Simulated scan of single mutants.
Amino acid sequence: MPTYSEPVNRRRRFPWWAKLILLVVVLYGAALYVAAHQAKVYLNAVVAPPGTGAEECAKLDFGGLPTRVSAVCQSAKFVDPVTGLDLSTGSVRTTTFVHNPTHASFSIASPVKAKLANGLTTDTNWQSLDSDIGGDLSGITYGTVTIGKIDSAITLPGAPAPLKITSDHADFNVRQNGPDLDIASRSTGSKLETGIIPVNLPGFSTRFEATLDGRGNVLSGAPIVPGEAVQGSIKRLAIDFGNNGTLAVSGPFRVAENGLLSGDFTIDVENYAALQATLSKSFPQAITVIDTATILLKSLSPDGKTGKVTLNVRDGRVQLGIIPLGTIPPL
């Protein structure tokens, strides 16, 4: 008696491993697209600081596959028609990893040259520059730059010689902190030279920490409007001469639309006797002012070594209590 078997399904099934390969290819392609997009976003953010300026990226190239994407400008130029800032750099590179496209590193080849509308120019070189930036798909939320062996020449309009600043090490950090922007920097092994007036300052280090209120979105591309009021707080702005004394400033501040500064600034001096000797030797033309400040600090010093005073600034007018000390021009 004849038997009948079930019809054979001759359609080949897609093997599971082929599906897995296809899925990996699709995911890699998507990640590669996102990484390339972010690399260009980060490159644009590095080449053109937030604002109304126009940037020029010479010969934009992409490379670095398969695990990362690098966007490279052989040179970059940024011109802000509002402020008159003209900035040019060597090659600029941002590298974004496919597995983590919201994180990147960047490098800028020196020299970096800048010219302001008032004629002030800077020319900065360095031996090494390491960096790290990151954020989300909307833009940068933090960044850090570490520079080794940096030297900068600043030429003031009409000055016969440039002001030269060198440092063995410097680093800069910015981070979005909710609606605010945190800024920090420091330098070590710094020296100051100028051909304008004789300066014999010993080597020093610097430290700066501040918060700008309501400026947290600047890193993500929010424009900086010229003439807009800026306020925040200086946590510490210090110049440290080691055994030769330390001078530090802290306090809240506000720069109004007209550029006038207001704030309450606490001046801290450590080892003011040594600092007096250091500044008097370096700036002999200001000995009278330095000696007067030292006498004031000595009268307020609890231990004969440290002193602290608070200066009140209102629309550029500086006072120590009820004693007027002078004015600060618009910033």
Rank of each mutant, 00 (worst) to 15 (best):
D240G: 07
A39T: 05
H169Q: 13
P81V: 08
L212C: 11
A109K: 03
L116H: 06
T278K: 01
G227D: 09
P66W: 06
L311S: 04
T310Q: 08
V313R: 00
K308W: 04
H99A: 14
A293P: 00
S5Y: 09
L120V: 13
G245L: 02
L212H: 09
F78G: 00
D132V: 00
N44T: 11
T155F: 03
L275N: 01
S167P: 02
G259M: 08
D61T: 15
I154H: 12
A161T: 10
F97H: 08
T278G: 05
A54V: 10
I290W: 11
D168I: 01
T124Q: 05
V230A: 10
N244P: 04
K113L: 10
G227P: 08
P302Q: 09
R175E: 14
G195I: 02
I183L: 15
K191G: 13
P330W: 12
P162A: 11
V255G: 04
H169N: 12
G29A: 14
L261S: 03
T95Q: 11
N177Y: 05
L60Q: 03
T102M: 07
G242N: 11
D86W: 03
A48K: 09
F253Q: 07
Y28I: 03
A48H: 01
A210T: 13
T288H: 11
W126H: 09
G316W: 03
T89A: 05
F62V: 02
R215D: 07
A30M: 12
P179L: 15
T144C: 04
E270L: 07
N100P: 04
A31N: 06
I147R: 00
A229M: 09
T67Q: 06
V72T: 15
P329R: 13
I323P: 00
R10Y: 06
G139M: 02
V47K: 01
S262H: 04
K77N: 13
H37M: 12
A54R: 15
H37P: 01
V269W: 00
I183C: 08
D130A: 10
L120T: 15
L201I: 07
L311D: 05
K305Q: 15
E209Q: 13
V225N: 15
P81E: 07
L22D: 05
R254I: 01
S262V: 08
T327S: 14
W126T: 00
D171C: 03
A58Y: 07
A273L: 10
V26K: 10
R13H: 10
